[in-house]
Design a protein around this nucleic acid. Structure first.
Length: 273
DNA sequence: AGGTCGACCTGGCAGC
DNA sequence: TGCTGCCAGGTCGACC
């Protein structure tokens, strides 16, 4: 599910909706989404704690509780949705955890496929996933030189490398295809063989695509919801993702789907070389 | 060490 | 209608 723009949208919503609130109770409906400790430990760690900050690390949401962090990785189908009103109204089949907050608010963790994970850690860097993350594309230090340095040693296809969070944080399957279409680069080209002009176009496309997607509240393919329960809008402007068989908006030739590293890639073989 | 592949899960949809 | 197989936004551990 959520890639960088979706998780960024969730974090901005949660910052607005739940910062400063206190966990009053936690109802664990399916404990399989909890990692790194028992349900009792999870419950005990949270109750009484205040949410002092919400931030994104790669594709993870970090709820900073002051000396403790609740790290949520929604993976493919996880949702973190804040709401207010009676808690009994809202239980969906996919609701796995209900966080009861002060001021009669709740935070729901919904997850159809149970791929997502929630973990309590002292510091977010305690998680391997976060410690190993590459530079974040929305960080001001993410320059074309940084990108070139990250890609220079990587032999696999650029599409595969873009999706590796240890190389660059936050880019997943939808945006990898969209970014490569935007800068006209063949997804099968080896990352280490990109020319400097290609590298500059790629850097520009990464920023453009991700910023546009954030501005549109992310992409909803089927499950994604923002922190206030809304769908994203970027799916209405994708140019290649999921459009195999349709004409390329630039040259009119057919968009094709191929499989790289067991994931679908969509591209225009005429525009991307 | 870097790279590839299945496993983790549920549900929607196309095709028969 | 109902079955089967394929597909889905991510990550990780086991292997080569």
């Amino acid at each position: 599910m959520p890639e960088l723009p979706e998780v960024e949208t969730i974090c901005r919503d949660l910052l607005r909706l739940v910062r400063g609130l206190v966990f009053e109770d936690v109802r664990i409906i399916d404990r399989r989404v909890i990692r790194g400790g028992s349900g009792a430990f999870f419950h005990r760690s949270l109750v009484g704690r205040k949410i002092v900050d919400v931030r994104r690390r790669g594709k993870a949401v970090v709820l900073d509780l002051g000396g403790l962090c609740l790290v949520v990785q929604p993976m493919m189908t996880g949702q973190l949705v804040a709401r207010s009103g009676p808690a009994e109204d809202v239980l969906l089949k996919e609701t796995k955890i209900v966080f009861l907050l002060s001021k009669r608010r709740q935070l729901l963790y919904n997850d159809q496929r149970l791929f997502g994970r929630l973990q309590i850690v002292a510091r977010e860097e305690d998680l391997d996933y976060i410690r190993q993350l590459g530079p974040d594309p929305l960080d001001k230090n993410f320059t074309v030189e940084v990108l070139a340095e990250r890609l220079r040693q990587r032999r696999p296809a650029i599409k595969t490398v873009l999706m590796d969070g240890r190389c660059i944080a936050g880019i997943g399957n939808i945006y990898a295809s969209e970014i490569l279409f935007r800068c006209g680069i063949d997804p099968c080209q080896s990352a280490m063989r990109l020319s400097m002009p290609q590298m500059m176009r790629l850097h520009k496309a990464v920023l453009e695509v991700l910023c546009e997607a954030v501005a549109m509240g992310g992409t909803t393919v089927r499950n994604y919801r923002s922190g206030d329960g809304q769908s994203g809008q970027f799916q209405n402007v994708v140019r290649v993702y999921g459009r195999d068989g349709q004409p390329c908006q630039v040259c009119g030739r057919e968009i094709v789907r191929i499989v790289q590293s067991q994931r679908s890639t969509f591209y225009c073989s005429h525009c991307q070389k």
